[in-house]
Simulated assay, not measured.
Amino acid sequence: MLIRLDTITLQTTAPIQLIDITEQLRECCARSGVRNGLVTLLSRHTTAAICLNERETQLQRDMVTFLKRLVPRDGDYLHNLAPVDDRDNAHAHLMALFTNASETIPIADGELLLGGWQSVFFVELDGPRPERAVTLQFLGQAAGD
């Protein structure tokens, strides 16, 4: 059984942003040496998420618009009265209630088992941020096992 950890780091440039990390994940998968198994991705932030969805520009705009409508930034939120890191970001924490901090994807023959329209996104809910991290844990059989 092979277990490998890796990290994808990125910078965000907008308050709410979907960043396609599929290619970076594929590169990490190839480096991991896992032939058959699983990869679990974890956003290490309470105001950022991981999701699988279609990469299409208008749909991504719709997703951002949906999140903004779901939890408006200017709501009357108690968390903003005494923010922990001087950011009025209660709305971002509340949006995170509707997203996933992690996803697990099967690996078969060294490839991610994603559907034809699926991409893997890092979802920024409280940007811009100079550095964000996604932890990857690969678990499975290496070639020759």
Rank of each mutant, 00 (worst) to 15 (best):
D76Y: 12
D85H: 12
A82F: 15
P72T: 05
I105C: 05
T46M: 06
M95A: 09
F98R: 01
L70D: 04
H91Q: 04
L70R: 01
W117F: 15
H79W: 10
I50E: 10
G116A: 14
M63S: 10
S43Q: 08
P72S: 04
Y77W: 13
R55F: 14
S43L: 03
A92P: 01
V71R: 10
H91M: 06
D86K: 14
L113E: 09
L94M: 08
S102Q: 10
F66Y: 13
Q118T: 07
R61V: 05
T57E: 15
Y77S: 13
V64M: 07
D88S: 12
H45L: 02
R55G: 08
D86T: 05
L67I: 04
T47N: 03
L78C: 04
Q60A: 12
R69V: 01
A49K: 00
D62K: 01
R87M: 14
F98A: 11
R44C: 09
V64I: 15
R44T: 15
P106S: 07
H45D: 01
L42R: 11
D88V: 11
T47C: 13
R69Q: 14
L41Y: 00
R73E: 15
M95Q: 12
L70F: 05
R61H: 07
Q118A: 13
K68N: 15
R73N: 13
H93R: 03
V71Q: 14
M95Y: 00
L70Q: 07
D88N: 13
A101H: 03
Q60G: 05
Q118F: 01
N89E: 03
L78M: 13
E56A: 08
D76C: 10
D88L: 15
L94D: 03
R73F: 15
A49H: 00
F66G: 01
P72N: 04
R55A: 15
L113Y: 09
M95N: 06
Q58H: 11
M95K: 12
D76I: 10
I107A: 06
V71D: 09
Y77P: 08
T65N: 11
Q60F: 05
S102N: 12
A90Q: 04
C51G: 07
T104R: 13
V64K: 02
D74V: 10
S119K: 14
L112C: 09
E54R: 11
A101M: 03
E111Y: 06
A101I: 03
D109I: 02
H45E: 00
T47P: 03
M63F: 11
A108W: 13
A90D: 05
A96N: 13
D88C: 12
D86W: 05
